[in-house]
Structures are given as structure tokens and as C-alpha cells.
């Protein structure tokens, strides 16, 4: 048992967390005459270590995940979901949301495709909530930064928000607030093309390159902000605003995060350094969820497909869910880290 634990921690810290890289960079900086414990040495070390770590993990992840995703094009997901009813359908939608390839500019065509095929609006929303919030990539990155327990609980709670949120929107009778042109659209069954293994590898490679190109600016920005927080902002500030001292920290972090648009990979370095400075675990996870799930651009897009009431209900359900998750994590922080 003890040896299993050792192996797991080695995997978590050295393979996923690449702690050896941090030590190596620290020594390299010292050799160049920079003190890793000083201001600039510290900023540089954090920046180099985090950027390299995230890009390496990201590349491996996106490739592997895209390969899996090539088995679940939206057409297939829709077909699978059509066979289920009730809570089962919502749960499956949330799970498939984690593996269906999805970019924000596809959210509207996808929403329309699901709805016009007769899927209940709640099932579609379960999918739309889980898709940006929880993906396989975030699971591995969270493991690398916060450890396995936090990562698993984050994913599980993310799925719970998606299932409960979707079900709730259904129960509230939100079906009628979908724009009429979608409800009246004819039902079309489309088949997705059959892929060979070579096609899947090509697809995974294309996804990898496209994703890196798309998220690179967010990662540099995120790591940059993270490095500054990590080394410049006084601990007492962070503790006062985002730590135990402020009972409204979770609400604050969520509301600040909602209009922002960033990839989960860009938010992790910010979260990492805030945690280091004494912010509550739940507070920063709420911030991450809010940034990835709700953003101004995605709301403007969604507004084209749904009426204001449904959009409002969607935002409200997500916000409340994210805030509850934040308090949950803050309450159980000592058992999870």
C-alpha cells in the first residue's frame, strides 16, 4: 500500500507536475547569477517552468484526446442521446460533453442540430455546460497542479452542475424559449463520414496545431499574470480578499470570472499562484469554472438561438452552481489538498 502511494506521488509530482523541471530551471538561473528567491529570478522561474510544463502536457493531451474525440462527432453524440430519456439522458449528455470536439463557434450550429432533432432542451444544456467546463485535458492539468483528489472532485462536481442545471432548465419549462426558427426546423439525419486510423491521426495532429495556436496567447498571458501574483502581490492582500477572511470571496471570484473569456489552460497558472498566496481552493476553482463556462462572446452567440428568458435562466443556474461548488471546496479544503 505504502509503495503504491509512493508511485502515485512520484507520478503526480514528477511526471505530471514536472517538479524536476522547476529544480532544473532554478539551478540554471542560479548559474546565470539570478537568485530564484529574488523578485526577478522568481518571476522568471515561475514563467519558464509553467510555460514549458503547460505546453508539453497540452501537446500530449490534445493529441490523445483528439484521437478519442474523432470517435464522437456531434452527429453520433446526437444519435446516442436520442435513445435515452430523463436523468439518464442528462447524465450521458454531460459525459459526452467531455469527449465531443467542440469549439465556441460551433456551439450555435450544435445547439440547433440537437434541438431540431428533438432532443429536450435540458439535455442539450447539460452538454453545453459540461463541454467547456470539464474536459479530459482539464482533468490531467488539474492533477498536475492541484493533485489527483482535487482534479477528480472538480470533474465530478462539474458534471453534477451540468446534469442538475440541464434538468432544472427542463423543469422550468424553458423549451418554449428556444427561438422559433430552430423549433420549426425540419429534422435532418446526417451521417458523419467513416474515418480510417490515418484520418484520425491526421485529425488529432490538426487539432493539436490549431489548439496550440489558439490557446498560446492565453497561456502566456495566464502564466504572466500568475508569475506577477506569485512574486509581487503581497500574501496579505490575497488572503484578505480571496482567503478565509472574506465570506463573500467565492461570489466575488465567480462574478469577476463570468464575463471573462479564456481557455482553462490559461486560467490554471493564475489559479495556481492565487492558491499559493492563500486564496481559498473553492474560490479559485469557482473563478476557473466561471471563466471557462460563461463568457460574454458565448452569451452573445447563444442569444441568437434562445430567447432572453432562457439565456437568463442558463446564466443564473450556472452561476448558482459554480458558487455552491466554490463553498463546497472551501469547506472541505483541508481534506482535499
Amino acid at each position: 500500500m505504502e509503495s503504491l502511494r509512493t508511485i502515485w506521488f512520484f507520478f503526480q509530482d514528477q511526471i505530471l507536475g514536472m517538479k524536476w523541471l522547476n529544480a532544473l530551471i532554478g539551478r540554471g538561473l542560479e548559474a546565470l547569477g539570478l537568485d530564484p528567491d529574488g523578485l526577478w529570478g522568481g518571476i522568471l522561474q515561475f514563467f519558464l517552468y509553467d510555460t514549458i510544463k503547460i505546453f508539453v502536457l497540452l501537446s500530449l493531451l490534445i493529441f490523445g484526446i483528439s484521437y478519442i474525440q474523432s470517435y464522437f462527432p456531434p452527429e453520433r453524440t446526437r444519435k446516442i442521446l436520442g435513445r435515452f430519456r430523463g436523468l439518464g439522458a442528462n447524465t450521458l449528455a454531460a459525459l459526452l460533453g467531455t469527449v465531443t470536439p467542440f469549439c465556441s463557434c460551433s456551439s450555435i450550429p450544435l445547439f440547433m442540430g440537437f434541438t431540431s432533432a428533438g432532443l429536450p432542451v435540458g439535455v442539450t444544456f447539460s452538454f453545453l455546460i459540461s463541454s467547456p467546463m470539464v474536459d479530459l485535458g482539464s482533468l490531467v492539468l488539474l492533477m498536475s497542479v492541484f493533485g489527483g483528489r482535487v482534479a477528480v472532485v472538480y470533474v465530478v462536481l462539474g458534471l453534477v452542475i451540468a446534469v442538475v442545471g440541464g434538468t432544472l432548465l427542463d423543469r422550468l419549462g424553458m423549451e418554449r424559449y428556444v427561438e422559433d426558427f430552430i423549433r420549426n426546423a425540419p429534422r435532418i439525419e446526417t451521417e458523419s463520414a467513416a474515418l480510417t486510423r490515418h484520418d484520425r491521426v491526421l485529425y488529432a495532429r490538426d487539432q493539436l496545431l490549431a489548439t496550440i495556436r489558439k490557446v498560446a496567447p492565453y497561456i502566456f498571458l495566464g502564466v504572466g499574470v500568475g508569475a506577477v501574483i506569485h512574486n509581487v502581490i503581497p500574501q496579505t492582500w490575497v488572503e484578505t480578499v480571496l482567503g478565509d477572511g472574506n465570506p463573500l470571496a467565492v461570489v466575488l471570484a465567480t462574478l469577476v470570472g463570468i464575463p471573462m473569456y479564456a481557455d482553462i489552460f490559461g486560467t490554471i497558472p493564475v489559479a495556481e499562484s492565487l492558491l499559493f498566496k492563500g486564496a481559498g481552493l473553492g474560490t479559485i476553482l469557482s473563478f476557473m469554472m466561471a471563466v471557462t463556462t460563461l463568457s460574454l462572446p458565448s452569451m452573445i452567440m447563444l442569444r441568437k438561438a434562445v430567447k432572453p428568458k432562457l439565456l437568463g435562466a442558463f446564466i443564473a443556474v450556472c452561476t448558482v452552481g459554480i458558487i455552491l461548488v466554490g463553498y463546497f471546496f472551501n469547506f472541505f479544503q483541508q481534506f482535499l489538498l
Partner: peptide, 13 residues
């Protein structure tokens, strides 16, 4: 046009 997209059954762009 979104309406045309739905008619064509396109779900990913």
C-alpha cells in the same frame, strides 16, 4: 445564415 445551417443539418463548423 443560421436558418440555412439548420436546414442543411450542419452541426460543426
Amino acid at each position: 445564415d443560421l436558418v440555412e445551417m439548420v436546414r442543411m443539418g450542419i452541426m460543426s463548423v
